[in-house]
């Protein structure tokens, strides 16, 4: 396999991608988020702060767009509203979509962000040199850069005793983002392996999905056909590796954000429902 060959056949790789499947994935972690029962309460985002050692940056840095919320809860108003938003607000939990064809990965000059055999976009903190190319290339704006060293500001003693030892506290100059709680996945996989059994559905659970009071966020292994998440994707006839879904029943609610960009996100959203009164 020469570099010449690789570059010469690049377009073929891209085409082949539409049809086939990465059947050599043992796990492919995915999500389904039902926007009809997401109430926008922020429990998921706070659970993420608690689980993932996210720094609190304060008002001034928040203003500059330096907040480190790996999972942010966006709120939109309907565009056709007149004097009042008569149908309420639209809430959108937005975290790293763990794209299978992630735009962040190929631009990293040091391969600090790469694709794991579990279908996750990994970020290796000790390898990151802080070029921020990945962040510029993310269409979802889901990558967060440590412009400062937050250890002392964000966790004055004894707040630092809450820090989760299962993942690093990122230092200045490092890019970070949602990992689908890889440390929790790791524990689930380790436990399963120690007992020589497959990982059960629900055993690996992200902090956000765990916290969601309405169970709007469903997390699991897409490769496990009996998992709740795989069933939901199937039910809503949403398939991976397509830039445009050709559903048998186009009325089904599943969709992926920015699918048309060919980034192949692993998060499926279910459309919000409203009743005209």
């Amino acid at each position: 396999m020469s570099l010449e060959n690789l570059l010469g056949n690049w377009s073929q790789y891209r085409k082949g991608h539409e049809e086939g499947g990465f059947h050599d994935y043992k796990h492919l972690w995915g999500m389904a988020i039902d926007l009809d029962i997401c109430i926008g309460c922020n429990a998921c985002a706070t659970a993420c702060y608690a689980e993932n050692n996210l720094a609190v940056v304060g008002k001034e840095r928040f203003e500059k767009g330096q907040a480190m919320h790996w999972l942010r809860l966006e709120r939109y108003w309907d565009q056709n509203e007149l004097d009042h938003p008569a149908q309420g607000a639209s809430f959108l939990p937005m975290m790293c979509q763990q794209c299978d064809a992630a735009t962040c990965e190929p631009v990293c000059p040091v391969a600090a962000t790469y694709h794991t055999p579990d279908g996750l976009n990994a970020q290796v903190y000790n390898r990151c040199i802080g070029s921020r190319y990945c962040s510029n290339n993310c269409p979802y704006r889901n990558r967060y850069f440590n412009f400062y060293s937050y250890y002392e500001d964000s966790w004055p003693e004894p707040l630092n005793m809450q820090l989760n030892p299962d993942l690093t506290v990122r230092d200045k100059g490092v890019m970070e983002k949602c990992t689908f709680c890889v440390q929790r996945i790791r524990v689930a996989k380790d436990n399963a392996k120690m007992e020589n059994r497959p990982v059960a559905d629900g055993e690996a659970m992200t902090a956000c999905a765990q916290a969601c009071p309405t169970n709007a966020i469903v997390f699991g292994d897409y490769m496990d056909k009996d998992s709740q998440v795989a069933k939901l994707w199937k039910k809503h006839q949403v398939k991976l590796r397509l830039t445009k879904q050709n559903k048998e029943n186009p009325e089904l609610r599943g969709y992926r954000i920015f699918e048309e960009l060919n980034v192949d996100p692993s998060v499926m959203y279910l459309e919000r429902v409203r009743e005209e009164v």
Binding site: L7, G16, E105
Partner: peptide, 11 residues
């Protein structure tokens, strides 16, 4: 596996 995923840099 890596090549299939078109991660040219990483590859």
């Amino acid at each position: 596996l890596l090549l299939e995923k078109r991660h040219i840099w990483f590859a």
